[in-house]
Design a protein around this nucleic acid. Structure first.
Lengths: 186, 186
DNA sequence: ACAGATACGGATGAGCTATCCGCTTCATCG
DNA sequence: CGATGAAGCGGATAGCTCATCCGTATCTGT
């Protein structure tokens, strides 16, 4: 395993930076766009990221890591229901803030192992928080572990369908999640 | 206004039939595909349907009409909450059954006036049912009229994210809607 | 400074969208 | 029924994006 060459590392940074900018602008990622805006050849971009999904997952990785951290903090909480609902709120807010994360969350088959691992961690944390809330009797028993992610994706999707501008999104998402949580509580 | 020519009518039927087949197969609609499978030239397809969206909306129209009919039946019901929840159930079940309907529902800007009109009717019915349920005190007051469609889209999206096979979808969708309705009820 | 490995860049082809226009088919009218 | 104009058909084609491939340039270790 040879360490990466200097120019390669520099270009990797440029590409991911530009990609993050494009995602934040709401533009659907196009690798040709990325190449042009990064001042690189298309081939370079495709060598670093064989598909759009690979780049998208890379761009979403820091967000997934942050969510994992938040989840681990939530696990330290005493009140099971509060910890659970706080974590779900963070998940939803992250998704409606970041289109890259929203897409990656909704996709079942990842292309990067790192993505799979981070998602696994987040799901595990959610499951644990759900189990505790259930044990405390504050959540309805018919909600399965595998439902958490789809429901969060559903809420952020509903928010996208509802909202004209990104600024409208956070309050809408909170309102929808609030309603859902009310439905989940026992 | 000249009545349509016979061959034109025949081709319109062929195109919409093939398009419905493709949609049911889960294939994303491509007008070239449609032309080939219908045994027609590409130009013919594009003359009848200038864009993919136009064809998609046309294919979804019968479903929208059926939903309108169901809604008008629900309006005849006595129990406000039952009428409301029944209608929402029909909306969600239709969406998870028909990808064309799901896409059309989630799109704000229609290309066919007919689509806009049908959606308007459905939203009006939903609003009326919601108002009645609110008046009867069985629904939380912070749910706005404009939230109904996004929430239904969100549920069907969550269902798509969750389910591997189409067969899994209906029960999942019912479960999610059930949870949401519980959150909506006062 | 040299050699080999690694990475770069853009020309290139494949696939899809959408258009345009010469030709065919249809409906009408004498 | 046959001619005529209108309406419709079909596919060649241009524009666009995705993705690949390979000759060339750059870097790293000696």
């Amino acid at each position: 395993m040879t360490p990466q060459r200097k120019d390669a590392a520099r270009n990797w940074d440029r590409i991911t930076t530009v990609a993050r900018e494009l995602v934040d602008e709401g533009t659907p990622l196009q690798l040709n766009d990325v190449a042009r805006r990064a001042g690189l050849g298309v081939g370079t971009v495709y060598r670093h990221f064989p598909t759009t999904e690979a780049l998208l997952e890379t761009v979403a990785t820091p967000c997934l890591e942050a969510l994992g951290d938040h989840g681990r903090q939530a696990l330290a909480h005493d009140d099971a229901w509060h910890a659970f609902s706080t974590f779900l709120t963070q998940l939803v807010e992250a998704q409606v803030t970041d289109p890259a994360l929203a897409k990656v969350s909704a996709t079942a088959t990842d292309v990067l192992p790192r993505t799979t691992e981070l998602k696994r961690q987040i799901i595990a944390i959610g499951t644990e928080l759900l189990t505790r809330a259930r044990a405390a009797g504050t959540v309805r028993p018919d909600l399965a572990d595998g439902d958490l992610v789809p429901l969060m994706c559903g809420i952020s999707y509903a928010t996208y369908v509802h909202s004209e501008t990104p600024a409208d999104r956070l309050p809408t998402a909170r309102r929808y999640l609030d309603t859902l949580l009310r439905g989940l509580s026992a």
